[in-house]
């Protein structure tokens, strides 16, 4: 290639347009924080939609919350907070060059993220099976629409109703609550999936021994991303499950 030897050690990851590893890390960090800002605004649209519909139709939220199991939500909150701890720990391990702890904490974060999605799967499956889905397709909205649901679907829809709502009047277009629920948690779930893919990538690189005290940027950046995913859930949980 050239007379210059290829840089060795962690400096092999120094890109040509930066002078020092520190400058490269600082640039990545400012880029990552800007990306997180854009993520907040991305979810911000959904939080605004939530607030607008909540202000205009409080009855819908009161009715809808009984369909969500706060215990499942609480378990998932605990799971995600723990995963944030292990994500932060992995950054420290990378900075210290402790590859063993690094790999262990990366695995732990990945597994906790998987556990979150398993719980989410059971929640979704139960709702979809009963017909408690989004918008105009929600079975409760269609109970009185002639010909929309079969006998069997009506029976199924009614038998799975939470006991608390039996005596409440059914709010108009109550499926909108579920639209908001599914879009918000769905987009969040998609972010969890992307996070898992990133942790698989980090594990591969950690296995190759890429990270150390001078080069830990990717571990740091993915952890930042993971914290924002965690933080968004910390807002979703009370808004959807607790304050009907």
């Amino acid at each position: 290639m050239s007379s210059h030897a290829k840089p060795s050690g962690e400096r092999r990851f120094l890109q040509v347009h930066f002078e020092t590893m520190g400058a490269q890390l600082a640039a990545s960090k400012s880029g990552m924080w800007l990306f997180l800002a854009s993520e907040l605004l991305f979810f911000g649209g959904l939080f605004t939609a939530y607030a607008v519909y909540r202000a205009n139709h409080p009855d819908m939220y009161h009715y809808g919350q009984y369909f969500l199991d706060w215990r499942m939500g609480a378990i998932n909150t605990a799971v995600l907070i723990s995963s944030s701890l292990s994500a932060a720990w992995s950054v420290r391990a990378a900075q210290l060059g402790d590859t063993k702890t690094l790999k262990a904490t990366l695995w732990l974060t990945l597994l906790l993220a998987g556990a979150f999605l398993v719980v989410k799967y059971f929640e979704y499956a139960h709702k979809i099976e009963a017909g408690y889905i989004w918008g105009g397709e929600h079975c409760v909205d269609n109970l009185k629409v002639a010909g929309k649901l079969t006998e069997h679907q009506i029976e199924h829809c009614l038998s799975a109703l939470p006991p608390e709502v039996a005596h409440l009047p059914i709010p108009e277009h109550m499926g909108r609550f579920f639209s908001i629920y599914f879009v918000m948690t769905g987009l969040h779930g998609l972010h969890v999936l992307i996070g898992m893919a990133l942790y698989v990538w980090l594990l591969r690189r950690a296995g190759r021994g890429d990270f150390g005290p001078k080069y830990f940027g990717p571990v740091d950046m993915v952890a930042l991303y993971w914290h924002i995913v965690d933080m968004i859930w910390i807002f979703l949980f009370p808004l959807l499950y607790l304050i009907g």
Binding site: A37, S38, E39, L41, F42, F43, G44, G45, L46, A49, Y53, W134, G135, G136, E137, E172, H173, G175, R176, S179, I180, V183
Partner: peptide, 29 residues
């Protein structure tokens, strides 16, 4: 700061058209 909001808006529009969310279409509330 602004473009992500357009992103979520057109995504919601897409989902509204596909799954009748009832966020933008008066027909579904």
């Amino acid at each position: 700061v602004a473009t992500p909001v357009l992103g979520i808006t057109v995504a919601l529009g897409f989902l509204e058209r596909m799954f009748h969310l009832g966020i933008f279409m008066p027909e579904y509330g």
